[in-house]
């Protein structure tokens, strides 16, 4: 199981790096688009659609990394009030609930991705890009997110992780 936890963490980190690079790429492409339009006075056709898609992709792909590094904001009022033992149970409940959502979206996005792939859907813009390539970011993101939540729950249950990142001494 430890191998699993480490492997998933590595996978999440890899997704995070990919997301970060996509954001950087988006910046460069937007600037390239403005350059093409204003300095070269030429048509800029594919850029805005492409930038939009890679940032959506960055959102889904980056999400597991943000979970790994506790970056998703939450309301920790109740956890702060509870004693450590109860806090562990609450953290298990919270993670399991979130896992349900991620699993539903994983299933849903896989079905949707397959539809786009089999139907060979294209964008309706002049660029006519293939949609399944973009859509892939969603099942990948939610897939790794689901794996990451399973790892989190395991670490919580076995005491490897503190609930909500709070030590037993942390109180309001």
């Amino acid at each position: 199981m430890d191998v699993y936890v480490r492997a998933v963490a590595a996978l999440s980190r890899a997704c995070g790096v990919a997301a970060a690079l996509m954001i950087l790429m988006a910046v460069l492409i937007v600037c390239q688009m403005i350059f093409v339009r204003t300095v070269l006075q030429e048509s800029a056709i594919w850029q805005s659609e492409f930038v939009t898609f890679i940032l959506v992709a960055a959102t889904f792909m980056g999400s597991p990394y943000v979970l790994l590094t506790r970056g998703h904001v939450n309301v920790d009022l109740l956890p702060l009030y509870l004693p450590h033992k109860a806090r562990i149970w609450l953290a298990l409940l919270a993670s399991s609930l979130a896992l349900i959502f991620c699993a539903v979206l994983l299933w849903d996005s896989v079905v949707w991705w397959l539809e786009a792939y089999e139907g060979n859907w294209l964008t309706s813009s002049i660029w006519r890009a293939r949609l399944w390539i973009y859509y892939a970011a969603m099942p990948i993101g939610f897939g790794v997110l689901t794996l990451q939540y399973i790892a989190d729950i395991y670490c919580l249950a076995t005491g490897r992780d503190m609930p909500f990142g709070m030590t037993p001494e942390t109180r309001l």
């Binding site: 339009r37 006075q41 048509s43 800029a44 056709i45 850029q47 813009s125 002049i126």
Partner: peptide, 22 residues
Amino acid sequence: KARSAGATFAEMWAGAGASIVS
């Protein structure tokens, strides 16, 4: 510098010498 509602029109604009902004 033309903004067009659809791909087919954008192509015609470009063919007539306009540059397309999306």
